[in-house]
């Protein structure tokens, strides 16, 4: 079997706040392979986001090892992690986290700026990524001129523009209504079909139902790790229908 893309071995994360210590992640070992579609579920405060931040190299575990794509990243320092995030990880946040002063195109270009890619190549790649999410005609718009669904699609374009090995989404539909949430989930499904590795953090069973593997987290520990026998795949929608979504 192919080596896992993500290999974490008994990692823990302890937050120290004065005297008090919070054991956000206790002892988690997980392996995730290329082109898996994993949902991380659990009640609020169970350690999902903490785990996600470690997986995304935004944070380092207090103990344990994390090997990403064959590289040991758990011992890396700030700037090394920044490079890993830039090359290997695509983030999708609940609150989109677009830069409000930048146009859609500029937002999507940003990871390429930090990758040191030239102006022209950057533009070309960013335009292509935006067209792929159906926003080819919104490149000059600022985020506040877009609907929530469109914003999240910009964020997806930004996450994909640098061809990362994993896509990490933390409650990606949390700020969207059901219909636009479904659009985003459909996009994930398509990405997965194209061979992307996707990890989605959610507390909504509806969203988790689309994944083919579900990790349940409770009190910083993995409660269960199951293959989703009854995957719900979203029926394909016609392209025009996506385009027709009205702006805010």
């Amino acid at each position: 079997m192919e080596a896992p893309i993500i290999d974490i071995q008994s990692i823990s994360k302890i937050y120290t706040m004065g005297e008090e210590k919070v054991h956000a992640v206790k002892d988690i070992s997980v392996q995730i392979h290329r082109n898996e579609y994993v949902a991380i579920m659990g009640p609020s405060g169970s350690g999902k986001s903490t785990l996600m931040n470690i997986l995304g190299c935004l944070d380092t575990p207090t103990s344990g090892t994390y090997t990403l794509n064959g590289t040991l990243v758990s011992d890396m320092v700030d700037d090394e992690l920044a490079e890993i995030r830039n090359k290997e990880i695509g983030f999708i946040f609940q609150t989109f986290n677009l830069l409000p002063r930048y146009s859609t195109l500029k937002n999507v270009e940003l990871p390429l700026v930090y990758a040191g890619i030239s102006n022209a190549a950057r533009r070309e790649k960013a335009e292509k990524a935006l067209r792929n999410v159906g926003l080819g005609d919104r490149m000059g718009h600022k985020p506040n001129e877009l609907s929530g669904g469109q914003r999240q699609r910009v964020a997806i374009a930004r996450a994909l523009v640098n061809d990362p090995s994993i896509l990490l989404a933390d409650e990606p539909t949390g700020n969207l209504d059901t219909k636009t949430g479904d659009d985003v989930m459909r996009m994930f499904e398509e990405l997965w079909e194209k061979g992307n590795t996707i990890i989605v953090v959610t507390h909504e069973p509806d969203i988790a139902a689309h994944a083919h593997r579900v990790l349940r987290v409770r009190d910083g520990l993995i409660e269960s790790d199951t293959i989703n026998e009854h995957r719900v795949s979203i029926p394909k929608k016609h392209e025009e229908a996506v385009e027709a979504e009205p702006a805010l």
Binding site: L58, E83, R85, N97, P111, Y114, A115
Partner: peptide, 13 residues
């Protein structure tokens, strides 16, 4: 927040 976003996208110190 902007700094956080930039760092998440790969901005070095």
């Amino acid at each position: 927040k902007e700094i956080g976003i930039r760092k998440a996208l790969g901005a070095r110190r």
